[in-house]
Each structure stands twice: as structure tokens, then as C-alpha cells.
Amino acid sequence: MGQERISHISEPQFIYNEHLPRLLSTPHYTAYVKVAEGCDNRCAYCAIPDIRGKFRSRPIESIEVEVKNLVAKGVKEVILIAQDTTRYGLDLYGKYSLDILLNRLGKVTGLRWIRIMYCYPNRFTNELIDIIAETPTICKYIDLPIQHASDKILSAMGRPVNQEQIRSLVKDLRKKIPGVVLRTSFIVGFPGESENDFQELLAFMKEMKFDRAGVFTYSQEEGTPAATMTDQISDDVKQERYHRAMSLQKDIALAHNQARIGQVLEVLVEELVEGSRNIYIGRSSLDAPEIDGTVEFSSPRELSVGDIVKVTINRALEYDLMGELAQ
């Protein structure tokens, strides 16, 4: 065609605000809200800081107005995201301020669920724990990627915490937020990860019993410090470790789910099962969209997609639950 090719690539500085138009693509009852952009961590495996630039928070007021506008449009669940959500506010206010933001969002009328994703273990302040525990609309669900459990690997990854600090935080969270569901993620096959290091991770998984965990095989990313480390792990070993970790987590997840039998959970109705009259699929307040499980349940009365109802759990699979509308 011979037309001119256009390139607009520059240092990333942008962060959106409440004034920009936004066309939601998620179901009408759920929206993601980005509280900050960029990342100032320098994890050895990660190219994100180079791609998305320095960490920059949106002002509390901007987020609050956006959330109120979303709720006015029918959104019931807001999912707060950033590369590093627990760092929120440090650049703008000189201190970690996610707790202050949550306190404000907890008072937004009509907002039923607030979910927080991508928390860093070393930035989980006592104030943050307290506000999660005290605010009814904040989901008792914490996404806390820890990536590994061996101190040797954590240090090589440039992660800011060691195993004992993670253990202590997990205990604290479970004690102060009764019933909290913890999701994490792990990288297997990081350069230099020996069989012993990997077994240390498995042992930690068994001990901590995270309710949910994602496992990822290490990806050698150019421009990152880890990419030039000499002791890279073969794809075969990465795959083998991935399957061993996933298999262990499956057993842990099943045990967690079985313990839910008899409990009553808050469930957001997402769809009517095709061809059925009274079987619905929903998602509990303890499950994030896309990555966690669902709840399939029967209801004697007609429900609408987007309703939040109470469901008594009567069956458990590894990742999904089944039940019936609570009377």
C-alpha cells in the first residue's frame, strides 16, 4: 500500500484517570480498577519495570470517583489491581496508603465486593490487615505472590523477603482475618534451583497450605539479570517441577474445598446453566474471576445474573464447589 508506518514509543509515564472514557468489557457487575501503574521492584526475572515504567499511584480521590461512577452503572464488584498494589500511595503520599484507600472505598454505598490483587509480602502493613478484617465489603481473599520459598532462590530472585518472614505473615493473616483465603504464585525452574531448593518449596507449600496457587515455569527474559545467570534449568526439568508442584497443590486445594462442605458462602450469580431451569453458576467472594473456581448451585427461585446470594455448599471438587441456595 506504500503508506507511512507510524511508531509512537516513548518512556512510559501515562496513568489513566476518572475523566477518561472507558468501555467496560467485563460482565456488567464486575470491573477492574487500576490504582497504580508501573513497578519499582527489580525482581531478577521480570521485564515489567522496563515495559511499564516507574511506579506511579493515582490519587485516592480519582479512584474513589471512578469507583462511585462504576457502582452507579451497576458494578457490584471492584477488583483493585496494580503491578504492586500494596505499594499504593508511597510515591504520592510518602507512605503505604492502600489501607486509607480501602477505608474510603469501604464506605461507597452499593459496592458489595472489593477484591485486592497483587500484594507484596513485605508491604503488608498492620493497618492493611486491620482494614481488611474490619470492612465487611472487602473480600476475605488475599492474592500474595511469593514466587518461591527457598531463601537461596528468593535472594537470587531479588525478592525482598525470606521464608520465615513469609511464614510469619501467613500466620498473622490467618489469625487476624478468620477464614481468609490466600492465593499465591510460584516460579519453578529459576536459574540455580536445585532439586533440594525445589523440595524446600514443596515442603513449604505443604506446611502453609495456600488455598490457591498458580505455578509458572521460569521464562528467560532478555534484559533481565536472571537471563544471564549461568545455571539455567532445562525445559524438561522445569516441566517436571511444574507438574509436581501442581499435583501437590491440587491435593491441598481439594482438602480446602472439602472443608467448605456445610458452609454458607456469598455467591455472585454469573450464568444460568444452559438447558436448565434452576441450576446456576456463580463465583464466591473467595474466588477471583478467570483464575479461581466456580460454585454450581440449584435455586428454587429465579435469579438474575449479577445477584449476590447465599449458597450452602454440599459437594467439593479440586477447584469448584457445588451447593444449593441457602434458605
Binding site: H8, S10, F14, Y16, I51, R52
Partner: peptide, 26 residues
């Protein structure tokens, strides 16, 4: 993100692409 990270490689190797917008695209 791919455009931001690999703009020069894409420019060279993918003639199909007419425009790139990095992370300041807005």
C-alpha cells in the same frame, strides 16, 4: 507491552504492522 518492548524488532521483521503504540499511547 510487546510494542513497547520490541518496537525496533517488530518494525524490521513484521511489515504487516502499520503503527505501533507504546505505553504512552493514550
Amino acid at each position: 507491552c510487546l510494542a513497547q518492548r520490541y518496537s525496533s524488532e517488530l518494525l524490521e521483521e513484521m511489515p504487516e504492522i502499520d503503527a505501533w503504540l507504546g505505553r504512552n499511547m493514550f
